[in-house]
Amino acid sequence: MRGLATMAVEAATGEGQGAAARALRRVLSVRWVLYVAGPITMLGAWQYASDAFATKQLFPGPSETFRAFARLVASKQLALDTLASLRRIGLGFAIGSISGFLVGLTAGYVPLVRHLLYPYIHFLRFISAIAWLSMALLWFGTGETGKVALITYTTTFVVMVNVMAGVASIPVNRLRSARCFGATEWQIFAQVVLPSTLGYFFDGARLAMANSFATVVTAEMLAAQSGLGYLILVSRQWLAVDEIFVGIIVLGILGWLTDRVLVSLTDNRFRRHRLRS
């Protein structure tokens, strides 16, 4: 008779065929039960923990956070700040993706460029955009330009590195067969290289988007008068942790949304172009 632990483990891992394991698995295999139970129990635990906490203001629960959310929406504050952040990200991301794509293609195509850029890439890799914030503030002032510049910088970097990797991983036989069929260099570029690298470009774009959010939030916390980062900062000064939570949650939703948009762009139109999931 194998132990209870063994049966439980077998049920959990999907292996094993004892009767008890199968029964347990049938109950737990209702995935959706768990998918729903997770967030619900967590929200409940959050509320409980916050109620048990001494100073309610310092650790609000879901209900307090929701009330703060309603307040911020009503006062239009949330919308204004969200738009401010999104505007900065949008501009920087757009410029950065295009320039990153172009530079990445060039560097991938021409080994000379790649070798020249190599030391800079491998050093700057460890210097985040935020480390440049001080210089950006001194050079561009505290207005929009500095923040957009930082976002452009990080987006260009991430996209460029990914596109370079993409060009480098085009299977040689793809190029060779195009040549067999007599394609000109331009045709090869447009019909073989470009589609092959699109997948890598979008992977880079997704990463860059996450970086951009982090960058903009920090920049807004340190040197801005609007934006979600600024909202969070101000809320901290008033110790309004419920509004901090609202800001954080909105950031999460925005990040998830933008990621979904990027993923859907690739899945629907370019699914066959993407060889990597």
Partner: peptide, 26 residues
């Protein structure tokens, strides 16, 4: 353990989009 994963997955798929630095405030 698949049940553990299913339980935490929705929370993780949301939390991963919150920039880490935002948590410095709380």
């Amino acid at each position: 353990f698949r049940p553990v994963r299913y339980y935490f997955e929705p929370a993780i798929q949301f939390l991963r989009f919150i920039p880490g630095i935002a948590w410095i405030t709380p």
